[in-house]
Every structure is written in C-alpha cells, then in structure tokens.
Amino acid sequence: MRKWLYSIALLGVMSVIIIVLLFEQNDRFRQGVYKTMIAENQIPEEYVPIYQEASDEYGIPWELLASVHRVETIFSTMDPLVSPVGALGHFQFMPRTWVGWTYPGVDDIGNIDEETDITDTFLIEEHQGYGTDAKGTGQADPFDLNDSAHAAARYLADHGATEGDFEQALFSYNKSEDYVEEVLNYYQTYIEQGYELISIPFQNHAE
C-alpha cells in the first residue's frame, strides 16, 4: 500500500514539474493557459489606471482599450510581444505604423529595417507615426505599456472611436471582421455585464 501511495505522489510531483516547465518554456502553452484562465469579464487591476489615463487623453472608452489589449496580447501575457508578421509590443503595432508610413519599409505590411530606432521621437514626429512618449522619457517604446496604450488610444480616436464608430476604428486597427467582433464582444461584456478586477500571476511584461 505504501509503495502504491509513493508512486501516486511521485507521479503527481512529476506532473506538476512538467506543467511548470511547459508554462515557462512553451509560449503557445502559456498563452493557451492564460486565455483559458482569464474569464471574459476579467481585467487586470494594475492596467486600469493606464487605460483610463490614455482614454481620457484621447476621448475614447477605457473599456474599449482594455478589450483591444485583451485580444491583441491577452493582457500582455503573450511572450514574446512580437507577432509572426512583425507586430510589436503590448498593443501590437507594425513598425511603420509606429514610426510613420512615410518611413521606408522592407515590405508592404509595415516592417522596417531592424537597425532603425523606432523609439526615436524625432523620427516618429518627422514621419507622423503613432508612437507615443506617454511619460515624457524622450522615447516612444511599443514595449512600454504606457506608451503602447496611449498610441493605441490615439490611433482608435483618429479612426472613428471618438465619434462612437468603434467598428470602423477597430477594422482600421486590424483589418479582420473576426477581430472586430471579438473585441466588441469583450467591450460589450465589460459595459453590459460589468467586469471583475484580477491580478495575473507570473506577469512580467507591464512596465
């Protein structure tokens, strides 16, 4: 009997170790865990002041910004914060959208030379990009949550969100009807059913 219990305990410990290793080393597994773990009506509490500040600045609902963040990177739990096509940061901007589309690109989807300093605010101003230095640090970094959230809010505002045309704004942000529907589903959940504030364990991306 003791030997049987020992075997069960050992199997349990090994299972936990395997799950932890998968979580820490397998990006897809970790993202799947977070996507399942975070309920439809949940929002990380630490991010709400950032959403609210950016949304107040650009005149859009902060819940819309939270919904975009949820869909783009599952509240920054995606690791790394770089998509297969090259979108960067917490809110997944293509480099040329961040720097400005008058800046030369290496393809037609918005990538630029890797040597380019996309945080250069003078470069962004020159090419009228959406990169935003939210805290006045002298850099506009898509991997800084404040900068990325303000840039996303500004982009949505410029594309119709301030007038209440959320569908148009979201479709401009990501030209996919499925994307628009998914974001609006979260937004409507937050607005109509309320939201629950949570803390995300093992979260390392918020800056």
Rank of each mutant, 00 (worst) to 15 (best):
W4A: 12
L5D: 05
Y6G: 08
S7K: 06
G12N: 11
V13C: 13
M14W: 04
V20S: 11
F23R: 11
E24V: 12
E24H: 15
D27S: 11
Q31T: 14
I38F: 00
I38G: 06
A39I: 12
N41D: 13
E45W: 08
V48N: 06
Y51R: 04
Q52Y: 03
E53R: 05
G59K: 07
P61D: 10
E63H: 09
L64C: 05
S67A: 14
S67Y: 02
V68G: 01
V68D: 04
H69C: 10
T73A: 11
M78D: 07
V85S: 11
G86E: 01
A87T: 02
F91T: 10
P95R: 01
T97S: 12
N111W: 09
D113A: 12
D113W: 08
T119H: 04
T119P: 00
T121K: 13
T132D: 12
G136Q: 10
G138D: 11
N146G: 09
S148R: 02
S148K: 02
A149V: 09
A152V: 07
A153N: 02
Y155E: 03
T162F: 03
F166C: 00
A169P: 03
A169I: 01
Y173G: 02
Y173D: 04
K175H: 15
S176Q: 11
E177D: 13
D178R: 14
L184Q: 06
N185C: 09
N185T: 09
Y186V: 06
Y195Q: 13
E196D: 14
E196N: 11
I198E: 04
I198Y: 01
S199F: 07
P201V: 15
N204L: 14
E207W: 12
